[in-house]
Each structure stands twice: as C-alpha cells, then as structure tokens.
C-alpha cells in the first residue's frame, strides 16, 4: 500500500492549485504533532472524549491527502474511543510511525 495515494493527492492538487497545496501540507505538518501529542496526553489521562476527537481530526486530514494507511489507523482509534475502549495496545505507536512516513513523503511533494 503506498503511503500517499497518488490519485487522491493529484486530485487535491489539481483542484486547489500549487500555492495552495504547499500551504495545506505546511498546515498539516505543523498541526499533526499537536494531534499526536494530544492523543498521548489523552491516553495517559484516560480522556476518551479528547482521544476520540483528535483521532477524528487525524483521520480527516489523512484522508484529505490520500494517506490511506494513516487514515485507517486513526479511524480505528476513533472507533475504539467511541466504544469507550482505550485498551489500544501499541496502536498509537503504529500510528505515529505511519505519520512519520507520511510526513517524509509530503515534504518531498511540496512544489
């Protein structure tokens, strides 16, 4: 599975224009570490609501860029939190790793 689905990304780029895609990537790279941080904090504090909301945001952004795997992982976490289940094992680490790959790839896709 590619880290970024090229078709989705191209579509986004085509519809939004070149300047705009850079701004979007920068906003995501700027904001995503906050979301990961919030997820970790929420998990430690057992704050299901905050955990769910941040997973939701991550899912939403991942899908915007075509980061399919990251989106699926975030969605899984969102659903677990929705079921009041924060017994997520190592899934957050897996998500962080997935984000690292997405971030690298997106940096290279700036124009």
């Amino acid at each position: 599975m590619p880290v970024i689905d090229k078709a989705t990304f191209e579509e986004l780029k085509q519809m939004s224009g070149e300047d705009f895609i850079n701004e979007l990537i920068d906003a995501f790279l700027d904001d995503a570490p906050n979301m990961l941080n919030n997820l970790r904090t929420a998990l430690a504090a057992k704050d299901v609501e905050s955990f769910r909301r941040n997973a939701h945001s991550m899912k939403s952004n991942a899908n915007t860029f075509g980061a399919t795997e990251l989106g699926a992982l975030a969605k899984e976490l969102e659903f677990m939190a929705k079921e009041n289940n924060l017994d997520i094992g190592t899934r957050l680490e897996v998500l962080e790793e997935a984000y690292g790959k997405v971030a690298e790839e997106l940096k290279g896709m700036r124009t």
Partner: peptide, 13 residues
Amino acid sequence: DDNKVNRILLARG
C-alpha cells in the same frame, strides 16, 4: 472547524 487543514481547505477555495 477545529482543524487547521480543513479550515484552509474550505477558506482558500
């Protein structure tokens, strides 16, 4: 929208 990327996406277009 509480999400920055979404705000930009909506606003710029």
